[in-house]
Design a protein around this nucleic acid. Sequence first.
DNA 1: AAAAAAT
Length: 679
Amino acid sequence: MSHVAVENVHGLEQQLAVLDLSAADGQGGGPNRNAFAAGRQGGYTIAPPANYGWDGGRNNFVNGYHDNRMAGGNVFNRGPPRMERGRGGVGGGYRGNRGGAFNPINPPQPMAFGGGGGGGGGNNSRWVEEPREEGDWSKPTPRNERLENELFSASNTGINFEKYDDIPVEATGQNCPHHIESFQDVDMGEIVMSNIALSRYTRPTPVQKYAIPIVKSKRDLMACAQTGSGKTAAFLLPILSQIYCEGPGEAVSAAKASGQDNGKYGRRKHYPISLILAPTRELALQIYDESRKFSYRSRVRPCVVYGGADIGQQMRDLERGCHLLVATPGRLVDMMERGKIGLDYCNYLVLDEADRMLDMGFEPQIRRIVEQDTMPHKGIRQTMMFSATFPKEIQILARDFLEEYIFLAVGRVGSTSENITQKVVWVEESDKRSFLLDLLSATVIPSEVQDGTGDTIEKPGKDSLTLVFVETKKGADALEDFLYREGYACTSIHGDRSQRDREEALSQFRSGKCPILVATAVAARGLDISNVKHVINFDLPSDIEEYVHRIGRTGRVGNLGLATSFFNDKNGNITKDLLDILVEAKQEVPSWLESLAYEHQHKSSNRGRSKRFSGGFGARDYRQTAAGGPAGGFGGRGGRNQAAHGGTRGFGGGGFGNFYTSDGYGGNYSHSQVDWWGN
DNA sequence: AAAAAAT
């Protein structure tokens, strides 16, 4: 049945979910979880901040790029902080109490919108609006219809997750709070509830049902849930709810005490109450955009900082207040070293895509941020980690940052959504391009377009997006060029493109203006793009986690998706894991893949381990063993046609099935065959 | 060997 919450039960098939990794193994003795709430309630000096536009945070100019969502320039002035009105909050203590003592002007008055436009940024503002940080943080600030439309108009029309109700859920850890069935089952306050309604969320997704009460009860959490199942809201909603409920504590007064805005970047240091770290800039931006929705009509101001964009602009944005910060690690460290951000009062830490954040490339930066600076220790702060994949070795590492945590697994850790139809096809390197053309013309929902000669041709429609993954940045450029020359409206995203181009590419893809996006791993994780109907692994990745995340760009929030992967003898290292994934997701398995996996199992060591953890085996050694060297089973020269037609390849005893021959898919695949996967 | 993430 559904939602089997298990306490301290060692599940069998849950991929290491439990083992000895559960929180129940006595890491106890740490500080009281509630310490931060109790211990950080020092003096609170109320000093009115600069004039905030009532713009849930985001101005129309962020990160150095003009944001077209709000034409007309920066209409809100950024005057100096207003003179202290000295409502004598000193010693007044913590502000979380609703209906607290200091609420003389309620509700706060918003700035006039549009009208007046803020006085040209002069330093002599005479606006007498209530600064947003004052007042009762649990009470909504006034509506702003323009902002409301901007934030909520594009959101999808509710999530249909009924079919997920029989996904097995495992929650391990001591005193795990009971899950909820509806957003009304837990008190998240009127601000959150109204933003949930505006977002048209009808009922919580499975991961939200469990994570929300866990986070609300101040527990640390390691959460694993399939791609597209609503993880972002699963942490944003309860964290924001807590901040609204408890107020800013010392963070706001500390920022004010840290200095005056000197007009340029400001001298102030900002103390976010919550920090969310993400592995790519676009993902950080996306999370930030979500946080703007859920902080609408609140006193919480979200900010985002990431590399590749104007740091001065980001600093100016911080200057307007920063209570919830979304960041990529490098830029955050930079900001910390410049004294612009202090984590001293950061009570909530989220690692999104946590297994990536803790892998070799990121771990030192995470330790730098979390352990080697002023962030409250684990047990004081609340730490939450989310990902669809979480290799065992990284789970162990992750425990360094967690205290008495709850392990939550919705579905098996690392599994793929059954909403995604997965196909693996044998394609030699030299055939990949022509194969891709066939695939594109066969799978896109076409719209008729006039080509240069006046003939009507069919091109991808804007409601049918195709995401093509390649392994290298060069490869991405080359493939984009190729597709462009073939007449496809396509673009590309990878780490060598400018940040501006990256964001532009993503936006053109999202909007359907370029319905084909060629991408490297930068787009593999977390990005929520509606209408991605087809993910194509032009090059398969070398580890299975990457595969799971890549194909998870389709089949989101209950929609169906298709993922096609080009496989050849370069991909030996992923054979077994790929087979396991296909079997588990009840997908058709090409018999040649089964045979290869069988061979691989008998011919390579270190099987089933991600290369990151292969101990003494460096990546190079592993590759040689697995795929290239004398011990490998992939030395043969088999062509796609041979494979497809069951011809003999160079693998000893490789019995090839007729999965691809039986449906004529092999070398004779043509544009007319749109039906090869059974639709 | 590659990608990502600060300049």
